[in-house]
Design a protein around this nucleic acid. Structure first.
Ligand SMILES: [Zn+2]
Ligand SMILES: [Zn+2]
Length: 800
DNA sequence: AGCACGCCGACT
DNA sequence: GTCGGCGTGCTC
């Protein structure tokens, strides 16, 4: 039996084997393999000077290299470099190689050794002369593939732009004046040539011919002549487009001073950068506490130290303004990376970074993999945002990848949020992240007043109302003062959960403590975590009432009710139906901000980024829809959402008012939102997680089986769950630390024509989970020629 | 992912 | 006797 090459390749000799990490964190310490060498300390970059070559030659004289091919393989392959490529091929180069009788693309990861019993074939072609990444990223690639149990080559083909087609970076011509120009007689030159020379003399640094043409449209032939005469230098450089070029730069506000708390935070982060050790921080700052100023100042220092900066934001829409802020301060050294760019635009930005022509990368989730060989600071803004978890394909959590990357690069990592993720705050409490607190707003804006409205029915009371009398009168009063109202509701519940109208009792799974969902195909309540099933109840077990309600009210009904109650008001609705994509949505938001509307009814999207100075009342129609959502983290999401909504209320010096309608006003999530007390929320939430065995006290993995027909999917899921339980049962070590829940139909039991079943694995510590998942690969026999497949979600965020 | 190898049913 | 079904396993 031949030994897989990667077991022999030097790069894997010292690979870390899922090292113990203390149980809760997803991040084993990185090993210091040959790829992990950290190079830095080149000193400050002088703009315009050629950047140091970020990539060293690592391919050894045997001319064998390890290649991750774009196939679903859980191993890398070894190839020989033909003599024609021996000088040009580097780590990070995109190549075409033969695999079986097909040809595929892949990336060179490093040198390799002969593989006993395998005839090594040759690399066929170099698809891009420039490496797409340096050796500093190789250990990160390996870790991601291993941690998320995803084939490495396939992962790279998704993460790096420009993966398939051969592509040569564009080049352009640059000219500069040479000393000879001063000594040569000027009579022999034309007037135009003289002008150009004067311009170049004045500029005194290389200029792109493309730029020069804007001033002297006919310059290329003249320049060529001047170059032949030795009066100007003529060279070729890589050409990059600047995606921010057309956007106007607002002038920088002057007199920006930091308050003492900001100052302290900056100093702590800067110290972390200078120490050249991994330095993770939680920057916990309320809305408008000036978190951005802190990381901008830290970034300035990182750049001054010759280190690079990576800034991650949860949404594409937020990347442009932040990139602009950076550009105002640091000029053109800023690259922008997000999935809203075309593949060729992304490749262009990627190459700019890989070639060392940009020092700062700003982007969304996928930018966490940007090629930055001298990384010194990573900022994950709004670190709690679920958008950092990629859904589909490689299911990575960009915040966690950023932390691991920070360890490899010995960089400072700043996780910034007003409402940190429970797992993040937990580690800050443990002292694993240094805690930086910005408790005060830098703008003179009062905190909003939050009130809870109990929706519970009284016996013999009035019927159900979408808008309760207290909220209605608050709206009337607000409109009477000529102020605006925001009515917020959750996206229509795609989960059907049941609760009691009289006492607020929620029907939950006793074992998992998540809401049971009513599935359309059977009239039963099911726990989609563990598969528990029961009949639909007729009475509430807590108060014996028969008033059991299904959840869900949509924006249309709210809008209709609003129009009925306030026929004079100017009302608009904003949700997926009204506003497919931004265009109309932006118009509506603009109208609202300008005061042309009185009431805006909307979903989640109105909480993001927009601030409406005229809004003095925010009504949350159905907060329970979020709290009752069948996920273990429903409470965390609800707190974060409501805290963000509350931050939208209020203007200038006048505090806004937030009214939250709920059937469980005594629930700690609402109590702590009302008090705007994050730490109290955290303490309650973390106790519940501890008792129930959810993260950060356990690690989760979701094994999802999907396809058609439904019966086959269910049967495969059952078989798989049995196999997993057998594996665990055989090993007492695993048995004590692993729980297999399910199989159960997913909450979304059918998605895009495919039926979904799932198995949830809970693990105390990472090693047992890893051991199980490694064996999973063997017991999963791809079922008979079927359209059924299996996906593994590590640290899942969406178990529904 | 492809593609070849291989071991059992109905066809020239 | 073979042609071909797709289950199984490998690809440097
Ligand atoms: Zn009840
Ligand atoms: Zn359950």
């Amino acid at each position: 039996m031949p030994i897989p090459s990667n077991l022999l390749s030097p790069s894997l000799m010292d690979k870390n084997n899922g090292r113990q990490d203390g149980g809760e964190g997803p991040l084993p310490a990185p090993s210091a393999g040959w790829e992990g060498v950290v190079r830095r300390g080149q000193g400050p970059q002088v703009p315009g000077s050629p950047p140091p070559k970020p990539f060293h030659k690592v391919l050894k004289p045997n001319n064998l290299c390890e290649v991750a091919v774009a196939l679903p393989l859980f191993q890398t392959l070894t190839y020989r470099l033909p003599s024609s490529l021996q000088d040009t091929a580097r780590v990070g180069c995109l190549v075409r190689v033969p695999v079986g009788r097909q040809q595929v693309s892949g990336y060179i990861l490093g040198p390799a050794r002969e593989v006993p019993g395998v005839k090594i074939r040759e690399v066929l072609a170099l698809l891009d002369p420039l490496p797409r990444f340096g050796s500093e990223l190789v250990p990160l690639w390996r870790w991601v593939a291993d941690y998320y149990q995803y084939p490495l080559g396939e992962a790279l083909s998704h993460l790096i732009p420009g993966g398939s087609r051969p592509s040569c970076p564009k080049r352009e011509h640059w000219v500069a004046i040479r000393a000879e120009a001063d000594h040569s007689p000027s009579r022999r030159l034309g007037a135009r040539a003289q002008e150009i020379l004067d311009y170049l003399r004045k500029t005194d640094k290389p200029v792109a011919v493309r730029e020069l043409r804007r001033i002297f449209p006919t310059c290329p032939p003249i320049l060529q002549r001047l170059a032949r005469q030795g009066l100007v230098s003529w060279e070729e450089r890589l050409a990059f487009a600047d995606p921010l070029k057309d956007k106007p730069l607002r002038p920088m506000e002057s007199g920006l001073t930091l308050v003492p708390e900001q100052q302290d935070a900056v100093e702590a982060v800067v110290e972390g950068i200078k120490n050249e050790e991994f330095a993770p921080f939680l920057l916990h700052g309320v809305t408008a506490s000036g978190k951005t100023e802190v990381y901008l100042a830290a970034a300035r220092e990182a750049l001054a130290q010759g280190r690079q900066v990576l800034v991650l934001l949860p949404e594409i829409a937020l990347t442009h303004p932040v990139a602009q802020e950076f550009r105002r301060r640091f000029g053109e050294r800023v690259a922008l990376l997000h999935s809203g760019l075309t593949d060729s635009q992304r490749l262009d930005q990627w190459r700019r970074l890989a070639a060392g022509r940009a020092e700062v990368a700003v982007g969304a989730r996928s930018a966490v993999f940007a090629p930055l060989p001298r990384l010194g600071l990573i900022v994950v803004d709004e670190e709690h945002d679920p958008a950092y978890k990629h859904e589909g394909g490689l299911l990575y959590q960009a915040r966690d990848v950023a932390l691991y990357r920070g360890q490899l690069a010995r960089a400072a990592v700043v996780l910034a949020s007003a409402t940190p993720a429970v797992s993040t705050f937990f580690r800050a409490r443990q002292g694993r992240y240094r805690y930086l607190h910005l408790p005060k707003r830098v703008t003179p804006q009062a905190l909003p007043e939050v009130q809870l409205i109990n929706l519970r029915q009284q016996r013999g009371g009035a019927g159900l109302k979408i808008i309760s009398p207290p909220l209605a009168s608050a709206v009337t009063a607000t409109l009477g003062r000529g102020e605006q109202v925001l009515l917020f509701l959750n996206r229509r519940g795609y989960a059907t959960v049941l609760f009691c109208l009289f006492c607020g009792h929620l029907f939950q799974c006793d074992q998992c403590s998540v809401a049971l969902t009513q599935h359309h195909f059977r009239d039963r309540l099911i726990c989609h975590y563990c598969g528990f099933e029961r009949a639909v109840p007729e009475r509430c077990p807590a108060c014996q009432s028969t008033a059991i309600k299904r959840h869900g009210v949509g924006t249309e009904r709210v809008e209709a009710e609003v129009r009925r109650l306030w026929p004079e008001a100017r009302v608009a609705r904003l949700d997926r139906d009204t506003a497919p994509h931004s265009g109309r949505a932006l118009d509506l938001l603009g109208d609202f901000a300008a005061g042309n509307l009185d009431i805006l009814v909307g979903t989640q999207m109105i909480t993001k980024g927009h601030h409406f100075p005229g809004v003095s009342l925010v009504g949350v129609i159905n907060a329970d829809q979020s709290l009752f959502f069948p996920e273990y983290h429903a409470g965390e999401r609800t707190f974060q959402l409501l805290a963000q909504v509350a931050g939208r209320a209020g203007r200038g010096g006048v505090p806004g008012k937030v009214l939250i309608q709920t059937y469980q006003p005594e629930h700690y999530v609402f109590q702590t939102v009302r008090d705007q007390d994050y730490e109290n929320f955290f303490d309650k939430e973390v106790n519940s997680r501890r008792e129930l065995g959810y993260p950060p006290f356990t690690r989760l993995a979701l094994v999802r089986v999907s396809g058609v027909p439904q019966e086959k999917v269910a049967q495969q899921a059952k078989k798989l769950a049995e196999s997993l339980r057998r594996i665990v049962g055989r090993d007492p070590d695993l048995a004590s630390r692993l729980r297999i829940l399910g199989p159960a139909p997913a909450g979304l039991a059918k998605l895009k024509g495919r039926y979904r079943w799932q198995i949830l694995v809970k693990s105390y510590g990472r090693p047992p989970l890893l051991a199980l998942l490694k064996q999973l690969r063997q017991v999963w026999s791809p079922p008979p020629q079927s359209k059924i497949d299996l996906t593994l979600d590590i640290d899942p965020a969406n178990l529904f």
